[in-house]
Design a protein around this nucleic acid. Structure first.
Lengths: 134, 134
DNA sequence: CTGAATCCCTCAAGATACTG
DNA sequence: CAGTATCTTGAGGGATTCAG
């Protein structure tokens, strides 16, 4: 593997990534973004930067721990940027990066799908439960 | 809090379901589909019906328990259909429903995004870790 | 205000073994 | 082949406290 350039190796790697493979990095990334807090945070940032406390208010039911944890993870993955304004008290804004916005658009589609199809799912569940129960 | 204006009521009616609300059914649905096994199972079924053992082979690393659990959940939500052929041994096929295919298309976009952007994410992580570490 | 750190606990993932 | 049953482990996540 010493005779291939880094670019060639990257190209091969890109084609080789398959989330169906357990050991594939893409699988690990898919696991990471297949998280309810991730989709909610990304969508909460869709219409511009938000402060930490804003996010906590928008995303009902999220604990400080999970919010911080999710934001750190997204920041580490380059999906969200974190900017600190050294005022008193300190002000921290989170915003989507270009990469993050790409994913956010997909996440928005998922969120919209959930909101738009919950009725059908409810009917399906009632049918299933009735069949199982009776 | 009990006296809502007509405008407020109209607003509520329009946004009947909002996944940002913790108690909203759509939030529960979003939580349910924001699951790595869900996205992998739906995508595994994208090119036609598959048998239980096929799915287990395609989705590397999934345990029988999680595969069964995920399939049951998807079947209950009306996203996947389950058909039993009473042969010996018994044969069970899983397929996407119309509703399931809708969601699968969105999930495919997510999976493709993960496979196509893992490199950028890796770079971001290295940068982040180097900054933190040093 | 924005978190980091701690304790604590549930519950769900995974491995294993067994069954129709 | 297609599951179910059982057990163990640990990671997810809530509540609380402390710090910059």
């Amino acid at each position: 593997m010493s005779t291939r350039t880094a670019a060639q190796q990257r190209q091969e790697a890109r084609q080789a990534y398959d989330a169906f493979l357990a050991a594939c990095p893409a699988r690990e990334l898919l696991d990471a973004i297949s998280d309810k807090w991730v989709s909610l945070v990304l969508n909460a940032l869709s219409d511009g930067p938000k402060r930490y406390s804003d996010l906590g208010r928008i995303i009902a039911g999220v604990s400080q721990k999970m919010l911080t944890q999710t934001l750190r993870s997204l920041e580490r993955d380059g999906l969200v940027s974190r900017s600190v304004t050294p005022s008193v008290p300190v002000r921290v804004d989170y915003a989507l990066t270009d990469l993050g916005r790409d994913l956010q658009l997909l996440m928005l589609a998922i969120k919209s799908w959930a909101e738009g199809n919950i009725e059908q799912v409810r009917v399906a569940r009632e049918t299933y439960d009735a069949r199982s129960g009776g």
